[in-house]
């Protein structure tokens, strides 16, 4: 896997420069067969545009929805998705893993 790519963060700076409201989601823990390694990041703006990945498609929808709230409130959130979790199945993390995703606002100042 190597180092996390800083290209997502570099894109984030570009989005901030354009005056967009931005949140950053990061995989902080995984158990079982998680599709993306710890450190993977997803960049989201308030219009629902996104870049990167935290699960290869399984939970992105739910993370993007939560990111909207994070941007509105300015408060970070720690999300957990797993097979035991009904929501996780609904969002499609049926691959047998559990992941924790930290979603935080990216502040310009």
């Amino acid at each position: 896997m190597g180092s996390p790519n800083t290209s997502i963060l570099s894109e984030a700076l570009g989005w901030l420069d354009e005056g967009r409201e931005v949140a950053l989601a990061t995989v902080v823990q995984t158990w079982g067969s998680a599709p993306q390694p710890v450190g993977s990041q997803l960049l989201i703006d308030s219009d629902g545009n996104f870049l990167g990945s935290v699960s290869g498609g399984c939970v992105e929808g739910a993370v993007i929805a939560e990111a909207g709230e994070v941007m509105a409130s300015g408060e970070a959130k720690l999300l957990e998705f797993g097979v035991e979790d009904e929501t996780a199945w609904q969002v499609g993390l049926a691959c047998g893993g559990t992941i924790r995703v930290y979603v935080e606002p990216l502040k310009a100042h």
Partner: peptide, 9 residues
């Protein structure tokens, strides 16, 4: 995360 953290990285 603050912008300045990203710039430092």
């Amino acid at each position: 995360m603050q912008r300045q953290v990203v710039e430092q990285l």
